[in-house]
Amino acid sequence: MSTLEIKDLHVTVDTEDGAKEILKGVDLVIKDGETHAIMGPNGSGKSTLAYSIAGHPKYTVTQGSITLDGVDVLAMTVDERARAGLFLAMQYPVEVPGVSVSNFLRTAKTAIDGEAPKLRTWVKDVNAAMERVKMDTAFATRNVNEGFSGGEKKRHEIVQLELLNPKVAVLDETDSGLDIDALKIVSEGVNRFREQGDRGVLLITHYTRILRYIKPDFVHVFVAGQIAEQGGPELAEQLEAEGYDKYVTAAATA
């Protein structure tokens, strides 16, 4: 049982003109077994929310709280958050030259579990996770994300999701830049993770198409650093038909 609770979250980012507030009071509760989709136009603060949960140093939380099962997430370092059970699949996964995928995965798994995985089963687990997302197992010997195509980077994120198996996964525009085949493969990976029953998912997306493959329980519309509206899956369909215009106009005139 785990619950990620975000209360009145205000976040700023440092710019040349000083601190700029991006998130202006976000409230969100993700209980285990629930999938929440966050949708919104560019610049609405969706990615800022994802990075703030993960603890990226670029963002400063000025007000509010984030807790995982009642424990203060904001007091934790980036790696402590991951070990507590949070995972961020990034929109632009980072290349790490000279570090092989297999070394990276084993080091991460060891850090999360607090002990090295059993060698015999681990190699099998890694290969199986790669095969499930149709990634050639030869990628294990390549450097992390280096020379990977956009789709390969996203599949690699899903491999990590499955191997590290967090309590709550934040997927930041994992669907962006994917062709339809890759989108299905990535969605299947997320669905396998969800099917465990007690895992939370925060799915951040600009487009509705991934929601055809990953059915959210709740949809939140993000505009100008706040949740402008929330509802069930039907809200996504409405957004697909009408777009974000009415929310953006409302926020601009507010």
Partner: peptide
Amino acid sequence: DDQQLFYLRSRGIEESEARRLVVHGFFND
């Protein structure tokens, strides 16, 4: 590279270990 360190740490890897990985990686190639 802050982005590299953040990526590694977001996978649970402690900062000192992440730094070691990055330096090793820098020379490994």
